[in-house]
């Protein structure tokens, strides 16, 4: 008797990892992703809480940011994330050269993100807006700086896996890169737009 497709259990990506076994890619990367998300969630919550008491300061400070540059960086990072995902598909199909090309694209867009961010930092620091200026700018530098550090680490990871290429390596680096994407998706409206 023919069975429905859903009746077959799907193979577990990471057998032997207990509760982590159903997660795709390296399970330890998921532990890192979850912990990073919790840390950023706490910072976002604290940012929103402090804004209640200092709304005028926060809104006046936010007007000194460039939301269009932040938006462009969102588009750049999302496209870089697409390239990383396409690199995983390429390596899964055994197309190593194509995988390296997608990784190179993801890396180049990551560098573009950094260039925009450095220009933004230079502009703000040149205008005398430093972390000690007020609570808003303390959080601005803390959150975007922490995220920026993750972007730099992710770029190093992408370069490393393009050199030591394997399916597991590419999948793990891509998962980290998507986490960087995800954090920026949450960070951009909270810091730049919500007023």
């Amino acid at each position: 008797m023919p069975q429905r497709k859903e009746a077959y259990p799907r193979p577990v990506p990471n057998p032997g990892w207990g509760p982590l076994s159903t997660l795709p890619g390296n399970p330890l990367m998921w532990v890192l992703i979850l912990s990073e998300m919790v840390v950023f969630a706490a910072f976002f919550g604290l940012f929103a809480w402090l804004r209640i008491g200092e709304r005028e300061v926060f809104d006046a400070s936010r007007q000194l940011l460039d939301p269009v540059a932040g938006g462009i960086n969102t588009l750049v990072l999302l496209t870089s994330g697409l390239f990383a995902a396409l690199a995983v598909q390429a390596i899964s199909a055994g197309r190593i050269r194509r995988c390296r090309q997608w990784l190179a694209g993801a890396f180049a867009l990551g560098v573009a993100f950094c260039v925009v961010k450095v220009m933004e930092y230079a502009d703000k620091l040149g205008a005398g807006l430093v972390p000690e200026t007020n609570t808003f700018f303390t959080f601005y530098y803390l959150l975007t700086g922490f995220h920026f550090a993750h972007v730099l680490f992710g770029l190093g990871l992408i370069a490393l896996v393009a050199w030591r290429i394997s399916h597991d390596n590419v999948e793990t680096a891509a998962a980290f890169w998507h986490m960087v994407d995800l954090i920026w998706i949450l960070l951009y409206p909270v810091i730049y737009l919500l007023r």
Binding site: P24, F44, G45
Partner: peptide
């Protein structure tokens, strides 16, 4: 992008719940 579609519903719920909690706080 992260491929959680293929993970167990508990993990999907945990990650989506964390994102929603963050946005509810904000």
């Amino acid at each position: 992008y992260l491929g959680l579609r293929d993970a167990s519903s508990a993990w999907r719920g945990a990650f989506i719940g964390l994102v929603l909690l963050t946005l509810v706080l904000v």
